[in-house]
């Protein structure tokens, strides 16, 4: 006899809440930029993304004051995402290049680098202000 063990499971799911997290909104808005503008003006709300865990490795934060320009971070960065600026003796990090390994955080003697939980980083311009940390 043919067995279809999936059927009861499917019928159960038909009457339970969908598992999808409706981020950023339930259905694709007609215009994404329009939707974001509405969110900014408070007319619409964004459904939040799944929360990140405590030690998540997101966009890098750089403490310019603490840095001493030792360039150790350049030595371990696998993605060559860090550039040393000789004039200011400080570094510049290109987020589009960074692979979020946090190896630079580990090596920095002055604890000047940290990872933030920020992960919504997509833009259309690699050199946008949000994509460069210095």
């Amino acid at each position: 006899m043919a067995r279809l063990p999936m059927v009861p499971e499917l019928l159960k799911q038909l009457f339970s809440r969908p598992a999808t997290n409706a981020f950023p909104s339930r259905h694709l808005p007609p215009s994404v930029t329009g939707f974001l503008a509405k969110v900014a003006s408070g007319e619409a709300t964004i459904h939040p993304p799944v929360p990140t865990p405590p030690k998540f490795r997101g966009k890098i934060v750089y403490d310019r004051e603490a840095c001493i320009g030792c360039t150790l971070c350049l030595k371990v960065c696998p993605a060559h995402a860090i550039e040393f600026i000789p004039e200011t003796k400080r570094i510049r990090i290109y987020i589009t290049q960074c692979i979020f390994c946090s190896q630079c955080n580990d090596i920095c003697p002055k604890d000047a680098l940290h990872m933030s939980p920020d992960f919504l980083l997509a833009t259309e311009n690699r050199y946008a202000e949000s994509q460069i940390v210095e």
Binding site: L10, L11, Q13, L14, S16, P18, A19, T20, A22, H27
Partner: peptide, 13 residues
Amino acid sequence: IVAARMQARIGPP
């Protein structure tokens, strides 16, 4: 929609 619901998805409008 109903197929999506049976698969625990939201599905399209």
